[in-house]
Amino acid sequence: MDPLIELVGVSKTFPSQEGDIPVLDKLQLAVEPGEFISIIGPSGCGKSTLLRIVAGLEVDIEGEVLVDGVKVTKPSKTRGYIFQEHRLFPWMTVQENIAADLPLKNPEVRARVKELISLVKLEGFEEAYPKQLSGGMSQRVAIARSLLRSPKVLLLDEPFGALDAFTRAHMQEALLEIWQQNRTTMLFVTHDIDEAVFLASRVVILDPRPGRIKEIVPVALPYPRDRTSEAFQNLRTRVLRSLEHKQEEEEAWSI
């Protein structure tokens, strides 16, 4: 199968007063259609930057990103983006936010919006404004807003990072359900090992400064996953070790 997303030698530097700072260094990655990829790494490893590059929000890069064989040069609704904050339009109700630039008067749009509202379990909140919603609900609206555009891939940048543990667990299950129903390819950035292993079919571990792919851990556990199972814990430990390894090195180096 041809990969849906291909990173070919992607490097990115940020200019600073002391010269250019490398953020990502020659990243190479192929994502199959329908895969659920978690990208994990310590803060400053450029994982969010990587996601922004795939989205087309950062275009000043070396190398290239191909989606369906076409080079990414600008953002597109075929690559949905879920930001860390929900970023809903505060003057629009839930259903208006999901429709966004599309007219709700159009019966087709209306029907799709209704469908998605029930997919993200927000029936009864169609007319509510974002200020009336909790964090988890807002993020579900944002996901519905992306899904309305039938994206090939959903790019999620620590979307549940600001939620409490219970809400977060519910959101993870909800996201897996959506994934299983729609088979939308997922690229999920997180700094939570548990989350990464729980969700993904492959966990990509990034090294910081400059961001490099250190290891890709396949998670061959069947869904729904049991966090308390031994197999899960073993994988969790493996990812943790891989991450810790670098941090020890770095501490030694910084002394």
């Binding site: 929000l57 953002p75 983006y81 930001f83 339009f89 966004a100 630039d101």
Partner: peptide
């Protein structure tokens, strides 16, 4: 940025 990703005219 959201408007960009959703390709608002």
């Amino acid at each position: 940025e959201v408007a960009e990703v959703l390709e608002f005219s």
